[in-house]
Design a protein around this nucleic acid. Structure first.
Length: 782
DNA sequence: CTCTTGACTTAGCATATAGTAA
DNA sequence: TTACTATATGCTAAGTCAAGAG
């Protein structure tokens, strides 16, 4: 078991990695772009006073031991009647207990065992009505001030609530059968399907034109499940055996038409539909947690459909079945009215577990995974855990120096397990890799650090490693990295024969082992904390480089550039939109057109003052990309556009006249209007032929030069816009903004640089990060 | 201990809505 | 005002990690 290595003596290299990363395609087409990503991991300083640290620790212990007796008291009546807003007892209680419990780590267990855990089971025994009655009779105030949990005592989080009131979940509407004339055809013959089967055929038909429906695995998984449903519900009047013989186009057309209709609805109709939807949802979207109104995140039970796995997922296309109330477990406060299941149905179970935050759960049939209904991102519960996540990452800065020193040393450890661990830590720290847990046969083949395999790394001497693998969501990770020479050696070693394709690089390491080791440095430290830490640290460093001057817009652009650095570090990508290529082409054309106009102005100057051209012939040359073909094409384009415009305007005017019962404009009117465009065309053509521009009255060299200056500006701006678009086309900024960058950094930036927070955080983000907005100032540091 | 399950965060894509240029 | 694009939000899949089961 103890694999001994020969000791290789390599001087401690500088702790800096230069990374050339090629953000690029997943299995699908992604545009590949080369990015230079330079990041120095030079250390941060260990300087948080020990005292402070200890204080937080005791606080955590203390609240854990908080007695739960009060819970019984805070029970409430169902949501619609405004819940009681009595302040949660947590604060006062936690505080008084704290004193007694400073040394209470031990005491926690037995006490809380009796006191907290069994609460759920106790509910039956409870003789609660009294406490309950008391509670509701106390006059309830409507809507208390927003609860600033971040200003109250910290709370250890093992008890998530003392009272929880909600209305359960919203089920998707039942299936609406297709009209009689819309049918699946089998070998050209319409098939009469029972509704259960028709629904499944409809799922496929509706997505006929998507990439999914063209994927063979998807087709075959779908078809197997479809046949099973057919068999189950008695089967159609003729045998449906082969996918190839199925024709879904009628179904597709039907749904397509419905979509078009929906889109074409008038604003008033749309409004009405939305109101109906809101009405349906209003009961479900809020709940009361410890008496405070909070939003529920996903109160809707996921509708049935075909499973859309990411990447090449073996189960993609399988039928995701309709979830029935009998499969749904509700979690709700003790003595709280239980939401009514739909008529004629029952819940699978009703729990009262206040150590979890979910309101409902069910098991999904594709992977057997649990699905949950949680509170929304702006809820106190989510906010608190978000806050804790960032505080944990901040705490890491007190340990990072030592951790880095240790793993650098252990890169040469004689024990294989240690050497692998150190190498993995390096990759997680420097390249921001995920932990990489084991995955099954029936999942997409994706990896993280610990699950990297032989085929995922290759070498370019002297010390460049090429990483190429599919990570979470089958997003490709491709980087050529100049790496610490010892890490280079180690990876080579981990690949050594007899290892071959398919074998794990880190065969003596897995995430639990790694995380256990990390806990030694800091309680709660796990692999993912490094991503948060490095993302936020990088953001802070990038923001620090921004000069506090210029317009708000310029600062905003600089902020986004910092954000982008982080997104690249975390390899957050997005597929280039279908329209991207096209819209880039449009902008490129726009630039060319401006250049053409600039060239024409220059020609005019040459006409007005030929001496100028003699003295600087270079200036009067057309831009290199403006060759003859390009110019002709652009001119055609401009003329065509003008013609379309005239025609459209003419048509509009006539429609208006028709509506007002006026006489339509004559065809000759249209011709007269077109003539103007034709004259313009003739002018362009003549210019092209003679190479001379027409001089219009009032033109002077100065005026023309001023116009050229304007055009120059527009060219610069548009080019920048294009570059920005290209740079951003494959990088997703939002993921890091939502999950990795401590929001207090953004708040700091907003205040210090006078950029309105609205510009940096969308409405939802402002709500989610309310705690940060209200607690950080311009001097806040991560 | 290893394997599985439960609970929660993180992720990109699809669609709705807002914003903006024509 | 309209038409298009950019951004925001909704959705749910796919990770991580701790705790429970065997």
């Amino acid at each position: 078991m103890t694999n001994v290595l020969s000791d290789e003596d390599i001087p401690l290299s500088q702790r800096k990695a230069t990374v050339t990363s090629k953000i690029s395609e997943t299995a699908k087409k992604r545009k590949s772009v080369t990015v230079k990503n330079e990041r120095s991991i030079s250390d941060s300083d260990d300087q948080i006073p020990l005292k402070k640290k200890r204080a937080t620790e005791t606080a955590v212990v203390a609240t854990k031991a908080q007695p739960s007796s009060k819970k019984i008291k805070t029970e409430e009546k169902l949501s619609k009647s405004p819940a009681s807003t009595k302040a949660s007892p947590a604060k006062a209680n936690g505080k008084s207990k704290k004193v007694n419990n400073v040394s209470a780590k031990q005491a926690t267990e037995p006490e809380s065992d009796i006191d907290e855990k069994p609460l759920a089971k106790r509910k039956v025994k409870k003789t609660d009505s009294k406490a309950d009655g008391d509670d509701t009779s106390t006059q309830e105030k409507e809507e208390e001030e927003f609860y600033k949990w971040w200003e109250s005592e910290s709370n250890d989080g093992s008890v998530k609530w003392n009272s929880l009131v909600h209305n359960g979940v919203l089920f998707p509407p039942p299936y609406e059968p297709l009209p009689a004339h819309v049918k699946l055809k089998y070998k050209g013959v319409p098939v009469v399907l029972p509704p259960e089967a028709e629904e499944v055929a409809g799922f496929f038909g509706a997505m006929l034109e998507t990439d999914h429906a063209k994927n063979e695995v998807f087709q075959s998984n779908f078809f197997n499940d479809f046949k099973a449903v057919l068999k189950n519900c008695g089967g159609p009047h003729l045998n449906v055996e082969k996918f190839e013989h199925c024709d879904f186009t009628d179904i597709f057309n039907y749904y397509e038409e419905k979509r078009v209709q929906k889109k074409a609805m008038s604003t008033a109709e749309k409004k009405r539909v939305k109101e109906e939807k809101d009405k349906l949802e209003e009961n479900y979207k809020v709940c009361y947690l410890d008496g405070r109104k909070e939003l529920v995140g996903n109160f809707r039970i996921e509708p049935p459909g075909l499973f859309r796995g990411r990447g090449s997922h073996p189960k993609t296309g399988k039928l995701k079945e309709r979830v029935m109330p009998e499969q749904v477990t509700i979690n709700i406060g003790f003595n709280t009215p239980i939401p009514q299941p739909p008529d004629g149905h029952d819940w699978a179970e009703v729990k009262h577990d206040n150590t979890v935050s979910w309101l409902a759960t069910w098991k999904e049939n594709i992977n057997g995974a649990q699905k949950y209904v949680f509170l929304a991102a702006n809820s106190s519960l989510k906010g608190m855990s978000d806050y804790k996540k960032f505080e944990k990452a901040r705490e890491l800065k007190n340990h990072i120096t030592r951790i880095r020193k240790d793993y650098t040393k252990e890169l040469k450890d004689e024990l294989m397990a240690n050497r692998q661990r150190a190498t993995a830590m390096y990759l997680i720290d420097v390249l921001a890799l995920r932990a990489g847990g084991e995955k099954g046969e029936d999942e997409a083949d994706t990896v993280g650090c610990c699950s990297l395999r032989y085929e995922h790394v290759s070498f370019k001497p002297p010390n460049t490693v090429v990483f190429d693998f599919l990570g979470k969501d089958s997003i490709r990770f491709y980087q050529e990295v100049k790496i610490d020479p010892q890490v280079y050696k180690n990876l080579k070693l981990f690949k050594k024969a007899p290892k071959k394709i398919g074998d794990q690089l880190f065969d003596r390491l897995d995430p639990p082992t790694l995380n256990r080791h990390l806990q030694n440095y800091m309680p709660g430290l796990t692999a993912k904390v490094f991503r948060t830490y490095n993302a936020s640290k990088t953001m802070q460093d990038q923001l620090a480089k921004i000069e506090n001057k210029g317009t708000v817009n310029e600062k905003y652009v600089a902020y986004n550039a910092a954000n982008r650095t982080v997104a690249i570090l975390c390899n957050h990508q997005r597929t280039v939109s279908k329209a991207h290529e096209q819209s880039v082409g449009k902008i490129e054309d726009k630039i060319l057109e401006i250049k053409l106009q600039r060239y024409r102005l220059k020609m005019t100057i040459a006409q007005l003052d030929p001496k100028l051209k003699k003295s600087d012939p270079e200036y009067f040359q057309p831009d290199p990309e403006l060759d003859d073909t390009a110019m002709d094409r652009l001119i055609d384009q401009i003329i065509q556009r003008e013609k379309d415009k005239v025609a459209k305007k003419f048509q509009k005017e006539n429609e208006k006249r028709a509506a007002e019962k006026e006489e339509a404009l004559s065809e000759s009117e249209l011709r007269t209007r077109m003539k103007v465009v034709e004259e313009l065309e003739a002018e362009y053509k003549k210019e092209r032929k003679t190479g001379k521009a027409e001089i219009k009255n009032g033109m002077t060299v100065e005026k023309l030069q001023a116009q050229i200056e304007k055009l120059n500006e527009r060219i610069v701006n548009t080019t920048l816009q294009l570059k920005d678009k290209e740079d951003n086309s494959t990088v997703a900024l939002t993921t890091s903004k939502i999950n990795y960058i401590d929001p207090r950094l953004t708040v700091m930036f907003s205040k210090k640089y006078n950029v309105p927070i609205e510009k940096l955080f969308s409405k939802t983000l402002r709500e989610k990060f309310k705690w940060a907005i209200e607690s950080a100032d311009e001097n806040w540091t991560f």
